[in-house]
């Protein structure tokens, strides 16, 4: 009798578990429920077509001015936190901001669309950048400068080594590293997963509530957004709140996989890029001491290093005081010095 009763309970539990999967209601992977729609889901968003991808993008400033293409961090971030860069448009520069493929509000692609390229996965990112430049460039003589923050700085440096003649300058903000081992070391140093700490336990505990299948972008992007907000080591979100539209979890996962498998060297070819590079690092990023900044910037043949006081990793651009008093003035001086 006891066995019969308990089998009934177990059967009820099993039926409940199975029927729960067919309930019609608000769904975690529903478009627009937990994360914003992307440009292929919302025609009202500003977008361009580049390299067979629909990218969330905008440009401001005179169309013929020196073009400053802003590259966000991540991989998988977006350009919302870099909107202060639009101030450069008022100084006569053509400022282009775009969310990289699979990131922010740009179109999503399956993980295999990146990993299937093997070590060439980064070429997709470079080809996107070439296509964005081509989309906005009004003449072959229009100067182009890349302004990359964090992963964007890595991407800008890799592009400079790959296409040294296509751009006239690089501005990089705290690129974690250019060689894969340096990138891994930086990521490790900049994330504190203390065994008993809130960060690790918040991140790990969440796995009981939400799990996403591969390429289930709505779920994975949302989950990623809950994990990235504030970092006491790098100073992200400690002075100014972090802002973003939507994370790109799949591209982040894919590019880290590719980087780790093929040990991508983003400094390859930089010896051919003889133009000056402007490099920022922040005072409050404990994972980015002066020694690390010097080690990373050794890869550039010509570089000027600027330390931004009083802020952390994001604050180089997101903090109004740092941006208006240190970062933007240095960028303007650099841009005006380009031949």
């Amino acid at each position: 009798m006891v066995l019969k009763n308990n089998l009934s309970v177990l059967s009820f539990a099993a039926v409940l578990l199975l029927t729960s999967c067919s309930t019609e209601d608000r769904t975690i992977d529903g478009v627009g429920n937990l994360v914003p729609r992307t440009v292929d889901q919302d025609a009202n968003l500003p977008a361009i077509q580049a390299n067979n991808a629909r990218l969330h993008a905008e440009a401001s400033g005179p169309a013929n001015g020196t073009m400053v293409v802003v590259l966000h961090g991540g991989p998988g971030g977006d350009y919302r936190y870099l909107l202060p860069c639009k101030d450069l448009a008022q100084q006569g520069y053509r400022v282009v901001l775009y969310d990289q493929r699979g990131s922010g509000l740009s179109q999503r692609f399956p993980k295999k669309s990146y990993t299937a390229h093997g070590a060439g996965a980064m070429d997709v990112m470079y080809d996107d950048l070439s296509a964005v430049i081509a989309h906005y460039r009004t003449s072959p003589t229009q100067k182009v400068v890349l302004l990359g923050h964090s992963w964007g700085g890595i991407l800008a440096s890799g592009y400079a080594g790959k296409h040294p003649d296509n751009i006239q300058g690089v501005i990089a903000c705290e690129a974690g590293g250019l060689k894969w081992d340096d990138i891994k070391a930086y990521v490790k140093d900049s994330r504190s997963f203390k065994l008993w700490g809130e960060l690790l336990n918040d991140a790990a505990f969440l796995d009981q509530f939400i799990t996403g299948k591969e390429d289930q972008h709505e779920v994975l992007d949302y989950k990623m957004s809950l994990l990235v907000s504030r970092n006491d080591i790098t100073g992200e979100g400690t002075i100014d709140p972090s802002v973003s539209w939507r994370n790109g979890a799949v591209i982040m996962d894919a590019l880290f996989d590719v980087g780790d498998t093929y040990h991508i060297d983003f400094s390859a070819g930089l010896d051919r890029f003889k133009k000056p590079v402007l490099f920022f690092h922040s005072e409050n990023n404990k994972a980015y001491p002066d020694t690390w900044a010097k080690q990373i910037t050794n890869a550039y043949p010509s570089v000027r290093l600027v330390k931004v006081p009083g802020v952390g990793h994001d604050g180089i651009i997101t903090n109004h005081k740092a941006w208006t008093e240190t970062t933007m003035p240095a960028i303007l001086t650099y841009l005006r010095s380009l031949p």
């Binding site: 209601d25 627009g32 994360v35 939400i210 799990t211």
Partner: peptide, 22 residues
Amino acid sequence: DTYKKQYPDVKDGWYAPATGGN
């Protein structure tokens, strides 16, 4: 409010079917 500043149209409430499993 912090998340709603990032995405004002986020939909609060109960979500089903299942949101995860391990």
